[in-house]
Amino acid sequence: MSAEDLKKEPLNVIIAGVGGQGNVLMSFLIGNALVRRGYVVTVFDNYGASQRLGAVASHIKISKEGLQNSPLLHEGDADVIVGIEPIELLRNLSQFGNPEVIAVANLRPVYPIGVISGEVEYPELDEASAAIRRLSAQAWIINATDEALALGNPIYTNVILMGALIGSGVLPLDVMAMEEVLKEQLPKAFEINKVALHRGVDLVKAG
């Protein structure tokens, strides 16, 4: 299948979260769907030394053709930022955002240990929500973790958000493209992930 023209060259996406939330799987699935559609894709998963709960940001650069892009986005140059965790979204919006950026947010916090110990404060969620809207041209804010728990396990959070991203229409990918990749990569858990994907799409369509 041949690639279509993009709204911008390269189209820049960040997926931000914390270790264990499924950032890397999400960027992998999206990257694979894009390569199947013929795009030149560069994906870098920026994570630190810890397996769980460290900040993770996946940078995805999409070109219709031409040279392979460099791994990281240029500051202020994101077109869409997905946040599996609210302050990781805000951290990336403040560095890579611009007045035209689109945000897709999960409003469920994962508290850093400094917050748990009381040394530093976590922003109130309505403030975080307002900041997300302030730093984006358009924002979809959902509670994907609660939706995932309703499906039986918080691990579906990432696929619900992936559905929301697809539903927002900013990527040159449709639900069918993601279903194909899910079926190939997660054959045993395809049905439940398909439900999660559609749940995400519906949440965005609803508003």
């Binding site: 900040a55 302050i87 990781e88 805000l90 951290r91 560095q95 850093p112 400094g114 917050v115 530093v120």
Partner: peptide, 10 residues
């Protein structure tokens, strides 16, 4: 906004 965000240490 960035100034209000707590760090996420290892």
């Amino acid at each position: 906004v960035a100034q209000t965000l707590p760090a996420r240490p290892l």
